[in-house]
Design a protein around this nucleic acid. Structure first.
Lengths: 333, 333
DNA sequence: CTGTTAGCGCGTTCAT
DNA sequence: ATGAACGCGCTAACAG
């Protein structure tokens, strides 16, 4: 490894002079600057960011801790984060929790050790302690996607309640009266808020809320599949199903397909989150689309602002609207 | 920030003793160990990985530089990498090049500064220089997915030629004589090797290679769409199309759908790379499936071995077989 | 078993 | 305009 000292020796100057050239700080005469730059090029010198980080007490790295990059919703969020941060010379370290508390703990510890300048966190359910710990370590933090009651923290999320209301309303106006919802984990705010929006729309339409038609479960495909099968086995199955996220929707559609039911002829369906933009040849699912890229982008900008300006206390909650995208997955009754 | 010194003061010992407790190195009596651990807990002390990295000349971080995490093929590779590295206490920094030389250069510089212990690189076409530079900096490197003639470097990739041969052979045996291939960029080894396998299969079947039916282009959806449209406009269109990767396949299917052509009745199609496992309700596309997870996993293991054992020179090339997955996207002629 | 000293690569402070 | 000394947080090498 070649260090600042090697370069200095080669250029016939003191190490500090090399430092000044690298960081464009302080006065360096044009002549010595050139000599130093030549030496840098000749030796292929690469500055050591660890030392710099140690010295500046700043790494220009932020962490993005989310549940699962395999989900295209999150890759889109990640792209927003990457773009926003690279604009300001920050890099992003990405970690998957898989909704597992132990993994989240492991990664936060790791990232704190690495002295990241800030956290973008999609907290696993019931992990207020993690948030408190990060805050107590004096590291900036923005919570993404989920609401965490009980702590004061900057948050950027989409309007789950509103989106669910719109979707359900759309179904009631088509004449559906038996509408099921396959939500996510019961202890995640987005799940409960989607159910809340669903219930509000039913009430608005003067329909009764049938608890048999409401279920909570994981955000993964299998869960959507199994719960759909259960719905179909009901003595009086629903005429429409609302899937709580994109993976649940896929599992649901798979179950319908295997049961020989056609969409929308035999069952109307809607979903939360759009399916991956390019991945469907023929987009047909009506959804409440979340602005994933924008969520990542804005959360990152907010975080970087906090990092640059740690004193400003009033925590913000930014709630982005969802967009109702009507396609051909529902029929009127 | 609380340091090792704060802990030492609190526990009434010397800093080095704290260090020994943290790293489980050297002798520490049970009694002092306990005192130190209490102090650590009370102060919420978190070791500074920057200092450790500086001291040890080792960060336990590797870089995964690939074209695009949006593609499920790469997220799967990334999962393999994550699993393999976390087994040995390494973390992964992930970067997207978008097949852009400038981005690749930017990231390699950044990652070298950050003193990553190793690189997993999916090189942008014609960037042997990047590889040489990393090697010359004394950082371990494994090239992923692509063959880079002209440098001696460890490589882990799938058998593009063989997979393409099998897929094409499958089509010729169904009786197809006019088979088109939509490959990737002409200067990427996987693209040319897939064309090579395709040609070998045609020759094996004593079919002429029609250059009008061979095209190169980007690995993205649009490219698959446009080139399919061109094929359909030919005076004598093919009866089967071979898509060079999963995104090209999606664009191709979209073009067929919009042109009112049914699969497989009006057109037989096959693809390289499987589509995302969960994302299709009804998997029907016949493909040469690459072992994405295993590629990531094995490449990482190889890299970590190199890091642990930098002296061992003979570079390896590991070529993993693809798997022909026959579904319902082709008909006999 | 514990502590002292010195140094990893770099940049701030103060001197020249 | 340039340099010397010191310290960021941590640990290897040596003393005791």
């Amino acid at each position: 490894m070649t260090t600042i000292r090697d370069v200095a020796r080669r250029a016939g100057v003191a190490p500090i002079t090399v430092s000044r050239v690298i960081n464009d700080s302080g006065y360096v005469s044009e002549k010595t600057r050139q000599r130093v730059e030549e030496a840098i090029a000749e030796l292929n010198y690469v500055p050591n960011a660890l030392s710099q980080g140690l010295r500046f007490n700043k790494t220009n790295v932020i962490a993005l801790v989310l549940s699962d990059v395999t989900n295209p919703f999150w890759t889109t969020v990640a792209r927003g984060t990457e773009d926003a941060s690279s604009e300001e010379n920050y890099s992003v370290i990405l970690c998957n929790t898989d909704e597992d508390v132990a993994k989240q703990d492991k990664y936060t510890d790791l990232l704190l050790r690495r002295q990241v300048d800030g956290f973008l966190l999609v907290p696993v359910s019931n992990t207020i302690d993690t948030i408190r710990f990060i805050q107590q370590q004096g590291v900036s933090l923005v919570v993404l996607d989920r609401q965490m009651p009980g702590v004061s923290v900057d948050t950027v999320r989409a309007d789950s309640e509103g989106g669910a209301y719109e979707l359900t309303r759309y179904l009631t106006e088509l004449g559906h009266r038996d509408i099921a919802i396959l939500s996510g984990p019961e202890d995640v705010s987005t799940s409960t808020q989607r159910v809340a929006g669903y219930q509000r729309a039913l009430q608005h339409a003067h329909l009764e809320v049938d608890s048999e038609l409401i279920s909570f479960g994981s955000f993964y495909q299998d869960s959507g599949y199994e719960r759909t099968m259960k719905l179909l086995a009901l003595s009086r199955p629903p005429t429409a199903i609302f899937a709580g996220n994109n993976f649940i929707a896929i599992g649901m559609m798979k179950a319908l397909y295997e049961s020989g039911l056609r969409i929308p002829e035999d069952m109307s369906v809607v979903g939360f989150d759009d399916l991956p933009p390019g991945l469907l040849v023929r987009p047909f699912l009506t959804v409440a689309d979340q602005p994933a890229y924008e969520m990542g982008f804005r959360a990152t900008k907010l975080l970087l602002e906090r990092i640059a300006n740690p004193g400003k206390p009033p925590h913000q909650e930014i709630v982005l609207p969802t967009r109702l995208v009507i396609r051909q997955s529902c029929r009127a009754i």
